[in-house]
Design a protein around this nucleic acid. Structure first.
Lengths: 244, 244
DNA sequence: CAGTGGTCTAGACCACTCT
DNA sequence: GAGTGGTCTAGACCACTGT
């Protein structure tokens, strides 16, 4: 009855189970938002004690991949980037509620990405990239602008969709149009001064401080799927962290 | 044999154990860097199963308060702020190793702290604060400057120590001189432009972008012990986060 | 009510560290 | 070798969710 656990036999059982679960999420067998089998079922399927199953699930829960709900089941978590990103540019005026800024794709092109983008997306020198220029607004005010690079191979479907039909949130859009799921991301934050183009788009003075956020977004199998650079006025920027 | 667990009886055992452990850390009974009793001893002392002890310890480990070491024991973690803070201002030139910047206290004064500091330190309107002006350098180059506010009551010992005798790292210094232990902190990051004083101290142009980090540091019992504002040139600033 | 995850127990054996 | 934390098992009972 016990299913095969392909990973290294020397590893602890619960780690091998975690890898197996992660693979089932990455492959789409366990779908984002959907439930995974119950602990009792997994116990039967893998032939291990329920405590071991629980420990494997625990690690994925603390990694943010799964979500438990007592009495209902355990679910594949759908990561919520847009709001997490927004925390950076906190509107001082707002009532404190979460607002998702509008997103408008201004331009699209097919080109060879520059070297640092190639590296982030792990593309070889000849690979083509799909580039999107995008503006994010709240209440009609430009908050930040974005340059997005996608590996052409996986995102061909986006090539012919009219720009007006791009959704406000891109990650669900990637999922519905291209079957590509974003699972996690790494961001690097730095500060620079606005160039002419950025200043014009954001309605700020050229040379005034801007925050730059570089994001590489990964799929469940940790393949890089998107590289994104965002520019926002530094004035509205506040970021909070807890250390221990 | 079972020790008393003062916290709410309706809470799960492992959470009440965690609270009890946290209290023993906060009180100094379990000292930073030192070992806590073995799991077997705790099992006897509290009269619960070892698995429950382990779960309580697990939560404190993932909170960063404890650290396990197989075969040796479990230890109270001494948080390592200085290096974590440094990650922000990463030297592009360096070899990638961790360097602790030198810290030099330039001035000290006793004054009523401004309102936002009072609030952060939870001081009443009449309370006095000890203020330190400090410069942090790497290889003799100023990296950032700091303004530090301490509640006078707990830090009186610092009042008469010659400024040259302040250590490079303040948190161990607080511990040895005043018996005050820092356990965690919250930081807020924002961007501004250098005023005349900051520009001069950092050797940058007035008006150029600077990163401001506001930190409130807490003791193990979550009492605010230090408020600190740091200014650094935005050019050398890079901060990395992982989202999921 | 049946089914889910949450808590708790008791004990076996393993892997590592120190002396 | 003695003692520590790490892994794994097996099973009992509780709390919550949906029907």
């Amino acid at each position: 009855m016990s299913a095969k656990l392909p990973t290294d036999e020397r590893l602890p059982l619960y780690q091998r189970l975690r890898d197996a679960f992660q693979t089932r999420i990455a492959s789409g067998e366990w779908k984002p938002g959907g439930p995974i089998p119950t602990e009792a079922e997994l116990t039967r399927e893998y032939g291990v004690a329920i405590g071991t199953i629980r420990k494997a699930v625990d690690t994925l829960v603390s990694d943010g991949l799964l979500q438990r709900s007592q009495g209902r089941g355990t679910f594949v978590r759908r990561p919520d980037f847009e709001s997490s990103f927004l925390r950076f540019f906190r509107q001082t005026s707002t009532s404190g509620e979460r607002i998702t800024p509008e997103g408008q794709v201004l331009a699209r092109s097919l080109a060879k990405p520059p070297q640092h983008v190639r590296q982030a997306l792990q593309l070889d020198a000849e690979a083509q990239g799909l580039k999107l220029d995008r503006l994010r607004k709240i209440d009609g005010n430009a908050i930040f602008r974005e340059e997005i690079w996608l590996p052409h191979g996986r995102f061909q479907a986006l090539e012919n969709i009219p720009l007006e039909e791009f959704d406000n949130l891109l990650y669900p859009f990637y999922e519905s149009q291209c079957g590509q799921l974003i699972a996690s991301a790494t961001e690097t934050l730095s500060v620079s001064r606005a160039d002419a183009r950025t200043a014009k788009m954001l309605g700020i003075e050229q040379g005034s401080p801007v925050v730059i956020i570089d994001r590489t977004a990964l799929g469940y199998d940790r393949t890089p799927l998107e590289y994104r650079r965002s520019w926002g006025s530094a004035d509205t920027f506040h970021y909070r962290i807890d250390i221990s």
